[in-house]
Design a binder for these strands. Structure first.
Length: 308
DNA sequence: TTCCAGGGGTAGA
DNA sequence: TCTACCCATGGA
């Protein structure tokens, strides 16, 4: 069997915090085993090989990656680089923690090393998944993503029932009517345009990962994608490690109204005003804020309620 | 049945 | 730049 590989993270790091940073660990093709603390992924490598791998905590200093099949050197290196990206192992949040230490509602961030969002292996996958969170409940997002994976994903050789996330080309070859049958509704033409644009080279999603570019430039590129508006662009910026914009959705409005405006109706402007002082860490402050004063983020509160 | 969801695109002002 | 309106589907 393949040897487990340790992938070091820039301190501070907490495996559990990355997994539970947002809902991605619940979306296909990932499988999360809470008891064992193991995330199982299915990846389609550039060699064309579809592989499964498990990822677990590396003693709060990184992750332990184990492919479930023997891989060549090139495939192994690609898989390691992919997992490093997914867990944002290189992200430095020291400046954010220094600010958070002085704010009681964010003081839990440093001890739990919160701030890294679990990423997908490709920006394409993250863009599609964020698109599937728009104007739909979370249960619907899980259903749509699972449908896309089972319908368009390439199967694992060892287990045909498990598939990788679809390649852009596989979706691009599809039709709008097919996507509608999968339940995507009015998102169908957006996804089709996105996939075809990626295949045609009109949208260069990998360029969004480049760290040197100004955030507003990356944001403009995101907003130019079909089906990606202010909420989705802000969410994707956070996933990319840029925290200047808050993805204002119905949940953000609900939280800010309840905890900062005594239940009065609020909009995007008010949500941004509340967290304006956090500057380039605005969306981290919003997302990891301990609204109820129970040392608990909204995500943790949600998971406690839903039993996840 | 009605409302709305981890909104986006478009037209018109 | 801001607002009104439409968009599919399923859950509450």
């Amino acid at each position: 069997m393949p040897t487990p590989t340790f992938l070091p993270a820039r301190p501070l790091f907490n495996f559990h915090s990355v997994i539970h940073s947002h809902g991605w660990y619940q979306l296909a093709p990932h499988q999360w085993d809470e008891e064992r603390g193991v995330l199982t992924i299915v990846e389609r490598l550039t060699s064309g090989r579809v592989v499964s791998a498990s990822i677990r905590d590396g003693d709060h200093s990184g992750v332990i990656l184990e492919a479930q099949a023997r891989l060549g050197k090139r495939d192994s290196q690609e898989l390691a680089a992919t997992v490093s990206w997914m867990f944002a192992l290189d992200l430095d949040l020291g400046e954010f923690y220094a600010l958070a230490d002085a704010e009681p509602r964010l003081a839990h961030c440093r001890p739990k090393a919160m701030g890294r969002y679990l990423r997908s292996s490709t920006v394409w996958e993250d863009v599609v998944k964020v698109m599937m969170t728009t104007n739909i409940q979370w249960g619907g997002t899980k259903r749509l993503v699972a449908s896309l994976v089972s319908h368009f994903g390439e199967p694992l050789a060892a287990d045909g029932a498990r598939r990788a996330f679809p390649q852009p080309a596989a979706v691009a070859r599809s039709r709008e009517s097919t996507l509608r049958k999968l339940g995507l509704g009015y998102r169908s033409p957006y996804l089709l345009q996105l996939a075809r644009g990626v295949v045609a080279g009109k949208f260069d999603l990998d360029r969004l990962k480049e760290a040197g570019r100004p955030t507003d430039e990356v944001r403009r590129d995101l907003l130019a994608l079909p089906g990606i508006g202010p909420y989705a662009a802000a969410t994707l910026l956070g996933i990319l490690g840029r925290f200047d914009y808050i993805g204002v959705d119905s949940e953000a409005v609900r939280l800010v109204s309840k905890w900062f405006y005594e239940g009065a109706p609020v909009g995007e402007k008010e949500v941004n005003a509340v967290f304006a002082r956090w500057g380039k860490y605005k969306s981290l402050a919003y997302w990891f804020w301990d609204y109820e004063g129970k040392q608990q983020t909204p995500m943790e509160a949600y998971e406690a309620r839903s039993g996840d």
